[in-house]
Design a protein around this nucleic acid. Structure first.
Lengths: 347, 347
DNA sequence: CATACGACTGGAACCGGTTCCAACCTGCTT
DNA sequence: AAGCAGGTTGGAACCGGTTCCAGTCGTATG
């Protein structure tokens, strides 16, 4: 409405526009008297600088984009919260792009990185394809990945191999030898890497305990409770079934709990279940899980990005956040008697 | 990096800048031959218009802000998803402001609405104070509220009075006469209105059934499971306790379920529980609840906002979305025998 | 054949900031 | 008294688009 510009302020204060600009930007070479004259003019005219004009002349957008599959995963929302928390304190705006299909993903990777659109990008849980890599590299925009491991980019990740080991080690230490593994790896149009790493950790720990890997004990599907439910029923249906299942997310673990209930297995007596993420509902369900610092991953991601925007660094940086075993009530030693076959009872 | 500007394109194509701009904006008065010359120049130079410059000269920010307590409530995330879904198709960017404390709330209300910052604002679940109202009104920016009812602004709401009635009516129709009510109304620094309306619906339906309102059956606290847990324990501890509890959100209802479990009441045999929202986890918990169209509320909110940005309307518009009872397994008729006192057994 | 009109086009002016350069002022040196 | 350094200031040029106005050209009209 009121189109008060810097020139109005200058005229009102009887100074030049350059001087007003200097006052606005806290430049040291403005005399005290002039500064106060300008400040009271700003006050009197209720002036606010136009950020768009500022961006144009600075040649910066003062905007940071986040591209992520936000709403499909509670964990991503928590990371976003960390990101917003830091950006709110800065002079940057945060614009969000939600990816729910892989075509949206490609569209965003392409359009957001066109030059001049944003100063920096945070990409959560989405691995770039090879042609994306080139585009990202030459776009000249700073990019930080969160929850994605890629040799050519800066990233904030957890040590998912270690997380996979922690979960598996916990089950082994309880006495389990038949341990199922369940992931949403198949959902690969997004190219998540975490599942692969957690699987590696699972394998390593089995090997360390001299337990042979049994392929029929792993299943890979899409990221949903119902998918996990189906996979778990399949896993539990095999001869000499697993006594414990490690699911690579809490969402999947909940599907496993549902399946166990459905086929009449008591958790944790007949079946131990461990998840990954420690989303909010996990505590209510008393789900044993691997906690990763979700909020913090957002915080560290932005900090890293802001740093790199200052000084385009040569080599990509990597921040590794810890994982932590949270013991709750869905894991226990396997029961002494041979575990019941699932068809003995049903609900 | 490559600072290809519209002038470069014009020179390369041998035309004027105005013509290039006309091509970019699909103006009809450009001859076919000129248009194709310009298009191939754009192609050859890999030119993308600078959106900041465009915004400055258009005098629009092409940006829509959302202010909301996103991450404290799963329901808000779902609304945001609807908003993003529509904005992604438009030429607007979506910038987000997460409110977790009331000081942040005030800061955002103040700063976001400074002129020239955004073209439109969607505010979710946050009621403005009186001095905010003035500022919003004179800012000249279009504003739409979602999940907030205020006489002076356009809004997308559900009929919360009706929702409260549906929930209460359901319990009454099952045979309950002693019905507790539990809200996070006390959390009033954010000024939610929904709770008040749901309470009104609750009262209306009790009255219609000739059931006296018993003040000791209502409790109001903050929005958290643990708060609901405490309130529910208090409600269940009174003499002649309620046989059913209506909680104004699923999050609260989960706290009630925890409390019931803690004091040894079976749900739904000894206690019926009904929530509100139908967040994702409600289905897993088999929670009976009132579903509101969260995603759709975001969609409608943006559509309304875009409309109003086109043509500043006189009177505020109101879009009313339906609520729907979702019967699951946490509600049932009260058991015939007198309900057990909670202290008889404990876990 | 002169005139009018419409279709198309070039480019200056503008949006509202920042920045850089020239100019001015003061006080101090020689 | 002239010269000079340093502090302070005004304002033009610039960022990269859009828009409007004036001008060119071709054709239809009287």
């Amino acid at each position: 409405m009121s189109a008060t510009t810097i020139r109005d302020v200058a005229r009102y204060a009887g100074v030049g526009v350059g001087t007003v600009s200097r006052v606005l930007n806290d430049s040291p070479d403005v005399s005290v008297t002039t500064r106060s004259k300008v400040l009271s003019a700003i006050e009197a005219l209720d002036y606010t600088p136009n950020p768009i004009a500022r961006r144009l002349s600075l040649g910066k957008t003062l905007t940071i984009a986040v591209i992520a599959p936000f709403f499909t995963r509670p964990s991503v929302v928590e990371r976003l919260r960390g990101i917003e928390h830091v950006i709110a304190e800065s002079e940057y705006d945060l614009i969000v792009f939600n990816v729910e299909t892989s075509s949206r993903r490609d569209a965003y990777f392409h359009s957001v990185l066109r030059r001049e659109r944003v100063d920096g990008v945070i990409i959560i849980s989405l691995l770039p394809r090879d042609n994306d890599v080139d585009r990202l590299k030459q776009a000249g925009t700073s990019v930080v990945f969160v929850d994605v491991s890629h040799p050519q980019f800066s990233q904030v990740i957890v040590d998912d191999v270690e997380g996979g080991r922690q979960a598996t080690r916990h089950l082994i230490s309880l006495g389990h030898r038949k341990i199922g593994f369940l992931s949403d790896y198949e959902d690969s149009s997004f190219y998540f890497t975490a599942n692969r790493d957690r699987f590696t950790g699972y394998c390593q720990e089995l090997e360390a305990a001299n337990i042979a890997l049994r392929p029929e004990f792993s299943a890979h599907g899409v990221h949903s409770r119902s998918s996990a439910y189906e996979m778990a029923k399949r896993l539990l249906g095999v001869d000499d079934r697993p006594t414990a299942i490690f699911a690579t997310s809490d969402t999947l673990a909940i599907g496993v709990l549902e399946a166990a209930q459905q086929v009449g297995l008591d958790v944790p007596k007949d079946l131990s279940v461990i998840g990954y993420d420690d989303i909010e509902i996990a505590e209510y369900l008393r789900l044993t899980t691997i906690r990763q610092s979700l909020f913090e991953s957002g915080v560290e991601g932005v900090k890293l990005l802001l740093e790199e925007m200052e000084s385009m660094p040569g080599a990509p940086a990597q921040i590794l956040l810890p994982t932590e075993l949270v013991r709750r009530d869905t894991t226990a030693p396997p029961s002494a008697r041979s575990a019941p076959r699932i068809f003995w009872k049903s609900r």
